[in-house]
Design a protein around this nucleic acid. Sequence first.
DNA 1: CGATCCCGCCAAAAA
DNA 2: TTTTTGGCGGGATCG
Length: 612
Amino acid sequence: MFCVSLKDLSSPGRTMDLSGDVHRSASDQKENICTGRPAPTRTPAELQSPADMRTPVKHAGDSPQPEPWTPTANLKMLISAASPDIRRMRKCDAVEEEEEEGEDGEAKPSRKQRSLGLLCQRFLALYPDHPQDNVTISLDEVASSLGVERRRIYDIINVLESLSMVDRVAKNCYTWWGRRRLGARLGELQRHAHQQGSAPAPAATPRDEEAADGDAVSVTANRKDKSLRIMSQRFVSLFLVSESQCVTLETAAQLLIDHNATSHSKYKTKVRRLYDIANVLTSLALIKKLHVRGDRGRKPAFQWLGPICFSSPPAVTPPEGVSQPIAAPSGREAKLTRHASFNVPPSRSSAHRLVNSAPCSPTSRPAAVSQQPLDCSRHALLDLSYREGVSTPLQAPYSQPRPHPEEDSAPQRVAYLPSLSQPSVVLLYGGQRSPKRKRDGEEEDENRHVGGSDPSGPAQPYHYLYVPHNAGLNSINFLLSASQSAAGLSLPTLALPYVLLPSYPVAPGDAHPSPLGFLSQANFLMGGAGPYGHPGAELGVTLAPPPQSKRDDVTKQQPLTPRTPKETTPTPSGGTFFQTPGTLGSVVPAIGRRKRGSAQRRLDVGHTPQAS
DNA sequence: CGATCCCGCCAAAAA
DNA sequence: TTTTTGGCGGGATCG
């Protein structure tokens, strides 16, 4: 509720460097690492806990590890400075700690203390942000040193991998890159995201995705992809291409959901994952949580705190090249490591987006929107962003100002239809600033303010979102391209084929997405116009809801029968990235694949809101 | 009570 | 087969 934390967050001056670092307060800045912890390449030695504990068992409490909670106190402190959450928790901790030991002897630390975010902080504290040497980390080691079960480490590692902060070298062994490559990675993600917008091609993303996505798509996602990793990439990409860099949880979940995701439980699952990812990203100070006001009250959202402008990132390091140092399992691979370049903060200003700032500017207006019946806020849509422009980014003193162009700072919105059962198209348009703050959510609890003015421009690019089937926006199926032409408004000249449905155009029965079919592959992207610029402005949205549709959300999605999502509907659609075993309906024997199935079923039933 | 999200079961993938 | 990875969702906590 309180966004307090957020504020806090900002307050402590975080600064970021280009590389995306956000430093924690000076105090702990990278020192954290050094301080207590051993330096980089640490080996299990330090922990030296019983060698054989291979799999860090799950101890309920903590006994097993040498340094479970208590010892970490200092660490906590360090960390706490760093993250808002932590800071927030700190208070609690104090209290709790005592309790823990005092009374129960070893009561569990309290949920907060065991949170993934805190765990991630602790994890990060073990390694330098900008390692000079190659640092290899072993999961066992880390797990034991942090006193958690390995499963948790995977959660963290996966998102770190998505950010190229770590690379998997071998079983149980990862190379720690810290933030060295973060800037480049973010740049890649951003570019990729933009590209996808322009081109439907699925693919090739920066390596991770390649592997995952590309294959997934083509191969049809056989193996379980690391959806967490991919989801994380995509989640981050959302921020990188969004104007305001503010994404609601709901939006993100919708966007990341896969095809049949219509089910409520599926949605819930995604949300859970999103929380996991968000916690890690928060620990990295790349995002912060906040709430935006929505129709239905406040909605949780995340604000990107990391850099968004990358000076020709690519240039710096070809991702690929660098990317896989892995080769040498033997342990060393020192080479690539250093590139100070990343460390340097890119001049934000310079970096600024090259993109067309000008054109983008939002002059246009929301007119388009008007036609739209629903307003975004209310029904299913989610805003992608609300933040304004930013002129003042956050109150926080960034040392580095956010790069955004003053002008383009408009917020964007994306509309999302929760569960469309039909194919739909959503039009995003750019609006003016004025509108921007509009309704719903405009403001977040804390930061909001309006930004500056935007002069700008005129036309906003339009973006379209295409939703193939019932699914929501799923994986990447939607695309948004923007044409710059937007000026006009209603129908932009899009280069790509699209269909614009004003309101409920699509007939329920019919259509399947044929027309747009080809688009389906496109990945989503939002953003920019033309050359990928940011569009600048805010986007409004228009959408065509499915006929009968529900009013909104997710909840409603599975109206009728409470069946287990999995079993149901296999919509054979094609490629989602996200397919996970579970997802692929067909592939997997749907039926109770796990025992849990039944349980799950129960749950669904139970949950199904209206179902009964 | 809804939002969060920890926990750990268990299956897929890798060794 | 065994071990490693990691989907997934029940259900406990938190606010």
